[in-house]
Design a protein around this nucleic acid. Structure first.
Length: 615
RNA sequence: GUCCCGGUAGCUCAGCUGGAUAGAGCAGCGGCCUUCUAAGCCGCAGGUCGAUGGUUCGAAUCCAUCCCGGGACGCCA
């Protein structure tokens, strides 16, 4: 894959090339030199680990081989002669001039991140809200993880489609519509809470308890209870009939029903956009492509599978069987209706073919793993896993874990409801504003005397950063414990810690009073260990972005930024900038600060986290 | 029953896809603000990496078998 072109400003790239050449010269093999960061700064900056595995292949002595490589490798102007250690490690210490040169090369508009050559699009399925339902913590993940993945691809210069696959079609929506029409509420004055209640009422009404009825008969409960259950089943039947009739009118384009349908979508989406805007996630109306969009593409999906001989009838339904597993994929019900698998197949073909996506990513709850495996395999069988020009697409279900409460159970309110996303965000922002306001009381605080509106903006940014960082900086596939108290402690490994480091840098740069041009004209130089550590870490930024694009592991961004903030804070502690005695030291440190600030801000922007100048 | 995903410090989590003495953050203990923001920095303490075998120079990482927890399994999405 071409995504693995290495950043020219990363020392690893140069070391890899030089050692590869040395290996070839010594053994005539083209092998991975296994350049890694040093595990211990006392050993050096990098290490080459290839000698051991290479010696195994050639049945040679690893230390002898390491010695031969050290003698052969050309590191003039790059690093000192590598030192052999242990069973055959080669420890590498870069020359200061080389680090400065790499910094200089990286310190450009793109921060060393080179635009990708891939011209096909990346498609990210994110957010995934259902019409008439409030967003809850699960949507938090689907939204911000998807947004971050999209931002990473955009950062690499790729065409990105954010696809909000709304649940806006089918019987559940019709049931809600029917229930609302029966209760004659004014759809123009509908709040999302009303709508959500109607949705749940409709679900309850529609739940025909046939199983319960049968069980009741079998166990011989009293006549009264039996009659009650029967009545419930009958009214459920009526509600279903009403819903089915409404669905028919909706599908038939009945203007009145369609207008009502549009209104409940608008009502739902108003709050969705409010939340995505609060979250600083780029999800808007232009990204909507819901189930209704694919309604005319469902029958052709089934037909395509049938005519390709990939589908068969089973108990009246149409299924796609797989060679390697028992469970088939159901694509048409015995009553002729379609299922979400049918819609997903239509959407997948749309994404690879119509949107020309060579990378299609579904940011959806991990519990749907089996479902997506089936859909992806079925799509591959019929050849829908290809772009318009026939390129094979990489299709991934990025399944995220469940958000848990402190009791390690899925996060619920005391009454057993899902937490609404809005409440969660409101509370986080409230805590952020309270904290920022409290600190601004201190006359020595940089935020002292700041305008109220600005203080609020900073506080909200802090609260949102806390939530987003806590989510995105963990391994996505695992469940995680949502503990607001810990998140808004704003100490240690948190979003605000990163913002704080950024504000400190911004403060130095503001107090320096040097123009950007003045700073940019200074020479990069690294002398102190803290400067060196910071510089080396900055050079890793472009590779980190590539790694995230490849693995979709958003927590790499968080880990990188946390280390960056740590490096900077250590530098801040031991290396005075404005108070340094030497003018050229002041200038080079100022330049290092400016670069660190831009990388930190750029990295935070991949998470969609704002970086205030003061806090 | 079949399949999938987890198990690392008291708690919450990393561990760069096989490398050197397993790392952070909270919580605990001890230092550092007349000096660029203490939302910070420095240090101490804390571990049979679920268990047992195996693969090899080398395993938290790969393989096998168990134990524990969670999840998914045809006409909902």
């Amino acid at each position: 894959m071409s995504t693995d072109s290495r950043p020219p400003t990363d020392p690893t790239t140069i070391l890899d090339a030089r050692f590869r050449a040395a290996i070839h010269a010594v053994s005539a093999l083209d092998a991975d030199p296994q350049i890694r960061l040093s595990t211990n700064p006392n050993f050096g900056d990098y290490q080459a680990n290839a000698a051991m595995s290479l010696a195994k292949e050639t049945k040679g002595n690893p230390r002898d081989l390491a010695g031969a490589l050290a003698a052969k490798v050309d590191l003039a102007g790059i690093a000192e002669t590598p030192v052999i250690a242990g069973p055959g490690f080669l420890n590498i210490r870069l020359e200061r001039s080389f680090i400065s040169a790499m910094l200089q090369a990286m310190d450009n508009a793109s921060l060393g991140v080179e635009p990708t050559k891939e011209t096909h699009a990346a498609v990210v399925d994110l957010c995934g809200v259902n019409v008439a339902k409030q967003m809850h913590v699960g949507h938090l993940r689907a939204t911000i993880i998807g947004d971050t993945i999209a931002r990473v691809f955009e950062r690499l210069g790729r065409k990105v489609w954010r696809e909000n696959h709304l649940g806006d079609w089918g019987l559940p929506i019709a049931m809600t519509l029917a229930a609302l029409r029966r209760s004659r509420v004014d759809l123009d004055r509908l709040s999302l809470t009303d709508l959500n209640d109607a949705y749940r009422r409709a679900q309850l009404e529609g739940r025909s308890d046939d199983a319960g009825l049968a069980a009741a008969r079998a166990t011989g409960v009293g006549a009264h209870r039996l009659a009650e259950l029967q009545a419930q089943a009958e009214s459920a039947g009526e509600a279903i009939q009403d819903a089915k009739a409404t669905l028919l009118r909706l599908q038939g384009g009945d203007p009145e029903v369609v207008a009502a349908w549009q209104k409940i979508i608008d009502c739902t989406m108003r709050e969705v956009y409010a939340s995505t805007s609060t979250l600083n996630a780029k999800v808007g109306a232009e990204h909507n492509r819901g189930e209704s969009f694919f309604r005319d593409r469902l029958a052709p999906v089934v037909e395509a599978f049938q005519s390709a001989g990939l589908a068969k009838e089973d108990q009246g339904a149409i299924v796609v069987p797989f060679a390697d597993r028992e469970r088939p994929l159901l694509i048409r019900k015995s009553d002729g209706g379609f299922l979400y698998a049918t819609t997903d197949l239509a959407a997948l073909r749309f994404r690879t073919h119509d949107l020309d996506g060579s990378r299609v990513i579904y940011v959806v709850d991990a519990r749907q793993r089996d479902h997506f495996k089936d859909v992806f395999d079925a799509a591959a069988m019929i050849g829908w896993d290809r772009t318009r020009d026939g390129n094979k697409s990489e299709i991934t279900h990025l399944g995220f874990g469940t958000v848990l409460g402190k009791d390690k159970r899925p996060l619920k309110t005391r009454s057993g409801e899902n937490f609404t996303l809005k409440d969660l965000l409101d509370e986080a922002m409230e805590r952020g504003v309270a904290e920022v306001t409290r600190r601004a009381q201190d006359p020595n605080a940089p935020t002292h005397g700041m305008r109220h509106a600005e203080l609020e903006w900073v506080g909200r940014a802090v609260g949102i950063a806390a939530i987003k960082y806590a989510d995105l900086s963990n391994d996505l596939t695992k469940d995680y414990v949502f503990d607001l108290d810990r998140m808004v402690a704003f100490e240690g490994d948190t979003g605000p810690y990163l913002q704080y480091a950024h504000a400190r840098i911004a403060n130095i740069l503001a107090k320096a009073m040097d123009s950007a041009a003045q700073i940019a004209s200074a020479a990069h130089a690294v002398h102190e260990p803290a400067e060196r550590a910071l510089a080396l870490h900055l050079l890793r930024y472009p590779q980190m972005v590539l790694d995230v694009a490849r693995t979709l592991e958003t927590h790499r961004i968080g880990a990188y930024l946390r280390t960056l903030a740590e490096c900077f804070n250590a530098f801040y502690q031991s290396c005075p900038v404005l108070k340094s005695e030497d003018a050229s030291v002041r200038q080079s440190r100022l330049r290092l600060c400016a670069l660190a600030r831009r990388v930190l801000q750029d990295g935070l922007s991949l998470y969609g986290i704002d970086a205030p100048e003061r806090m």
